[in-house]
Design a protein around this nucleic acid. Sequence first.
DNA 1: CCGGTAGGTTACCTGTAGTAAGTTACCGCC
DNA 2: GGCGGTAACTTACTACAGGTAACCTACCGG
Lengths: 202, 202
Amino acid sequence: MRYSSHVKTKRVRMSRADRERQMLDVAEEVFAEQGYASVSMEEIAVRVGVSKPMLYEYFGSKEGLLLATIARARGELGEVTARAVAEAGSAEDKLYSGYLAYFRFNEAHRRAWLVLLQEPVLGGAAEEIEATRRQQTDLIISQMESLVPGRPRRALEAYAEIIVGACERLALWRMRNPDVTVEDAARHMMDLTWNGLAPLSG
Amino acid sequence: MRYSSHVKTKRVRMSRADRERQMLDVAEEVFAEQGYASVSMEEIAVRVGVSKPMLYEYFGSKEGLLLATIARARGELGEVTARAVAEAGSAEDKLYSGYLAYFRFNEAHRRAWLVLLQEPVLGGAAEEIEATRRQQTDLIISQMESLVPGRPRRALEAYAEIIVGACERLALWRMRNPDVTVEDAARHMMDLTWNGLAPLSG
DNA sequence: CCGGTAGGTTACCTGTAGTAAGTTACCGCC
DNA sequence: GGCGGTAACTTACTACAGGTAACCTACCGG
């Protein structure tokens, strides 16, 4: 506690890896809270306890920082859902478990998930993101192949996109309706994507 | 052709309504092409043939301009789909026609539709947008009420969100796969939302 | 022909992304 | 133990875009 008498804590030197994690943590928090546009690099730097050029050394640009933050979050989400699907039994259960895992992540790591929504600000420049996204849809597609065999590849791709988009919007809707449980959301997804509307209609 | 010898055309005075339309046209084009962040107000002003403060008088801020552009586009999209649904016959046909109209709009008015994707940059500040969105989901919900009677309101809301999100992503996917026709896309949506996956699985 | 106003401009301020050049703490080595 | 070398870091700037205050001018009714 040599520096406890000062208000400002002494700036600590760190290894690259630790610094990077710390920067991403701060960026995730602050991007989620205020949105990409409203945050200045200066503010992030101050919160990290470091000066602005450090951020540029690590991430090249503000977009680069957002990109890295999104990439990390998407990776975590991908891991969680992939595991859930792998551990489930029947085809129906795999689908339901995947949905559940998605909405659970969205609830437990709200900040990480909110950052994913900032993706469109990157425009078409998101090469690195495209890879992680494809990995995401590929998981769904590979599951589909055994789930509904014989469908053309194109159809499976379309289904994957539909499911991803639907989950995203439904998660957003759930934020506005907090009394909807994770199980409810997964159930609603099953209603449409598993059973379809036809059996319900007169 | 009095001014044909000059490179710059003479700046024309206009009525408010005409100017506003013109500004929105330019904004739509340029936001769709380059993305919100990469466009400067100066550039838009020049393309309109007017000075920057005019844009601020009409729309208050850059976000305000984006908001107005999105609102107009969403209005057009809403009209088109609502009409298509109203004119269709059976429940199944209403759903299919709605999808068709959506993807047709997405194809014919690509620029307007691309602007809609920029919405997330507005963060939570999109009060005015929220109204148009609700109008959109309300259309779906009201159709659903007669389509699948007896479901709780909450479920219908969820279905509407799912459909909106799914259409959005599928339209994006279609842009990357131009050989997928409008009918294909609508068909894929029907596969999941009308028939569901269950009848297809072993 | 003249004054009021809608429609318009010039010239500026502020704040933030991004950078060049210099500085400090730490670590291996003689 | 002191002395490079280098990795981690800072200060002090530039450039540019969003936003605004103050001023201008074409047109129209009386």
